[in-house]
Design a protein around this nucleic acid. Structure first.
Lengths: 238, 238
DNA sequence: CGCCTGGTTGACTAATGTCAAATTGGGTGG
DNA sequence: CCACCCAATTTGACATTAGTCAACCAGGCG
């Protein structure tokens, strides 16, 4: 079952105390009384595998702070071609859009829980709290930086470089949550990786195999083990 | 000389009154007294063609609001491959980065002028002004939306679709400034377009020629004239 | 007048995509 | 516990798109 193992800390409607990613999340700098007020706006909602949080072009009614699990964020072309624009991890904030409609779709990869906020109350909460607005800015700027890295990857890297850079980047993001490990868990399937890297599933599969033949990685269930970090980082940076 | 023609409104050190893109810029919602205070933080700086505003990995000391001209924003791989991540137009805001270093390079395409702010004073100005912070958020969210569209383009569109989508998108951005026109001016060269679309200059050139043969556009000096908007938009959306 | 830069065109190559078949591994029911 | 099924992945053979390398062309400027 591919999902990150986090303690299931939020069973009920309100969970003021044990959110395991609070310090990483949008609400991470609120003091206790502010946080209680903020919590009153939140609904803790669970989603099952493949369930949609929201879809592109729907009216934006809510924003989300991811607390457990992983989401796939993507855009579709009319003929069905899909581009995954990112994977959201616990602590990530979703749902801000340049218009009144979501600019992409989001669905759960495995089981997932979020703090859901209706847009109106959320906006009213933040609009006179500069600290919160600064934090929103940090989040947006970080996302934008990731998006720019991804443009470089999509436009200018070879298939092998794409896969290597993806694994390195994914490992770093997991390290923020779980600490650095030799084994990189990959909760998403090969098709998701392909749609993230602008490749076909066959090319991704062949590239994994090639990296394994070259003794850079070992493919294990639900992930890969990185053998030669140095050579690997070099390939990813290249 | 490829550049957008805007009245040259800012000759001296301070220009409180005639910035032609003020309503579109980051400072567009400040009242007069706030705007005067804000202006005291600004330096109006000019750059010539190809001059660098800042480069990737330099320490961030300033942020910029573009007032005239066009800038090229890009990232490089160690071997020199380049990805243009965007073109900045008057009103655009540059220089926010997820770390203390710029995450991309920016240089002037033609002659260009900016309002330059040192980071510290700028941050102190905005940090207790929710309206300004909201505006920063809007800007960041809009940029993020454009970046996501570009990821879809880079990962999943064919060369012909890339070029068509680029022309349509560029025309829309110019329309915000100049109003909608049949002739789309292209101040950037073919190599810039190629590096923006993840193609080679030869492929871009061939694709322009192909679109002209198909009577969708006419190539004119410094731009193209769109003949069949409907068929063209369809190709770009595809 | 002719050079220089940027753009275009042509012939060929290489990387990645396409289509189809084979393999793996986990989960389920007997 | 085992056999089977299904979905995901891998592999192979071949097609296609875009890249590479090289030559050519056109306009602007000394």
């Amino acid at each position: 079952m591919p999902h990150l193992a986090f303690p299931n800390s939020c069973d009920g409607f309100r969970c003021e105390t044990h959110c395991s990613v609070r310090s990483l999340a949008i609400c991470g700098q609120l003091n206790e009384s502010e946080h209680q007020e903020f919590e009153r706006l939140a609904q803790h909602v669970r989603f099952g595998p493949k369930e949609a949080l929201f879809s592109e072009d729907e009216m934006v009614d809510s924003v989300y702070s991811l607390t457990e699990g992983i989401a796939r964020l993507y855009k579709l072309l009319p003929d069905g071609r899909r581009q995954i624009i990112g994977f959201a991890l616990p602590g990530d904030f979703l749902g801000m859009a340049p218009s009144n409609r979501y600019s992409f779709s989001a669905d759960a990869i495995g089981p997932l829980t979020v703090c859901k906020f209706f847009r109106g109350p959320f906006m009213r909460f933040i609009e006179n709290r500069p600290q919160m607005l600064m934090r929103m800015n940090e989040f947006a700027t970080r996302e934008l930086g990731l998006a720019q890295d991804q443009m470089l990857l999509l436009g200018r890297r070879s298939a092998e470089e794409k896969v290597a850079a993806f694994l390195v980047g994914w490992r770093e993001r997991l390290a923020r949550l779980e600490g650095m490990t030799k084994t990189v868990t990959l909760p998403m399937g090969r098709q998701d990786i392909a749609d993230f890297l602008g490749l076909t599933i066959e090319t991704v599969s062949r590239t994994f195999t090639k990296l394994e033949r070259e003794k850079l990685i070992v493919i294990v269930p639900d992930g890969v083990r990185v053998l030669d970090s140095k050579r690997f980082d070099a390939l990813a940076a290249a």
